[in-house]
């Protein structure tokens, strides 16, 4: 009798220990899930908002967005130049990168022979793995001199006389300008964009493509009329996702932009972006208002990139849902 009671007791002990572990682990796993997905994003936003409060009070919202003066000495700050620079370099790099990324995705999914696919895929993935400061360093030491002495004078020579377009290529070609920055930024986001688009392309059910081929469509017609329409929301999502990345990219652009707080009048003028201003000025900010103004532009960047990435995620998810259904 005694043995049975003892056995029951130890069994109960094991059970309570098991249940305790069960609850303890669920709780700690859950905490980090909650932290990663909810607490930290909110905490980061609150900290940025709190640090920016001085500047928000002093400069307001609309006024801060539209004011082009950035003067640390007079403590007079407006973010228009940085916002303009961020938007322009992002849009330009997207224009340069999008056709290439879609072309690479088409090449990998539809065109390359099977033995060649992993080579291109790996090359693109390696390009994505290179740290962004390497892009910046390479752009600054290798690409900038070539842009300044060869490419930009050539562009000025060929396009400088055309009305309207010519205006974009005025100024002294230095290589530290909007054009070069956008080019390096575009090289940086091509691999990321290409892999998102490739994943979307792979989600097209083979039967849809086969039926189009069966009707006598050529390869390009299948891509143009079946693959791209089917994956449109995925492609759009991938593009916005890449734009979100380009928006927050710091090290690739910080050597090339020139950190000059002005609205560039042409593609060959130095400018600044939100991230460039943060990287260059944060440690120099000697007054509370100055630092607070920097936090304010950081907060704007945070909100804009979260919104854009959220929209992109939603669009990609829509394609995935259709794929599963």
């Amino acid at each position: 009798m005694e043995n049975v009671a003892e056995a029951q007791k130890s069994l109960r002990e094991i059970k309570t220990r098991g249940e305790f572990l069960e609850r303890f682990l669920k709780f700690s796993f859950g905490f980090w899930a909650l932290f990663a997905g909810l607490l930290f994003p909110i905490l980061a936003g609150v900290i940025l908002l709190y640090e920016a409060r001085l500047a928000i009070e002093k400069f307001g919202f609309i006024n801060f967005l539209t004011y082009t003066n950035w003067d640390p000495v007079q403590e007079d700050f407006g973010a228009a130049t940085m916002i303009f620079g961020t938007v322009v370099s992002t849009i330009l790099s997207m224009l340069l990168a999008t056709p290439v990324a879609i072309g690479i995705a088409i090449f990998i999914t539809e065109l390359a022979p099977n033995w060649f696919k992993p080579i291109v895929s790996t090359a693109v993935e390696l390009l994505a793995a290179i740290p962004s400061i390497i892009y910046g360093l390479w752009g600054f030491f290798i690409l900038t001199p070539i842009m300044a002495t060869k490419v930009e004078p050539w562009l000025q020579d060929k396009l400088g006389d055309i009305p309207l377009i010519g205006k974009l290529f005025q100024g002294a070609p230095t290589g530290v300008d909007v054009l070069n920055t956008s080019l390096v930024l575009s090289i940086m986001i091509i691999p990321f964009m290409a892999s998102v688009v490739r994943d979307a392309f792979n989600m097209v059910p083979p039967i849809m493509k086969e039926s189009a081929y069966g009707l006598g469509a050529t390869k390009w017609e299948v891509i143009r009329q079946v693959v791209i329409p089917y994956t449109a929301s995925g492609i759009a999502g991938g593009l916005i996702l890449s734009a979100g990345r380009a928006l927050g990219e710091t090290m690739a652009v910080t050597f090339l932009a020139g950190n000059n707080p002005q609205i560039p009048k042409s593609l060959l003028e130095p400018f600044t972006t939100i991230t460039v201003a943060l990287a260059n000025q944060f440690t120099e900010a000697d007054t509370d208002v100055y630092l607070s103004a920097l936090y304010y532009v950081g907060l704007l960047l945070y909100l804009v990139s979260l919104t854009m990435l959220g929209i992109a995620k939603f669009m990609v998810l829509r394609l995935e849902k259709r794929w599963k259904a």
Binding site: A36, G37, F40, P41, A44, L48, L241, G244, R245, L247, G248, E249, T250, T275, L278, A279, G298, L301, Y302, S305, L306, L309, G310, K313
Partner: peptide, 9 residues
């Protein structure tokens, strides 16, 4: 989404 937020922030 947080994977892609600007690291400088």
């Amino acid at each position: 989404i947080m994977v892609s937020t600007p690291s400088i922030l």
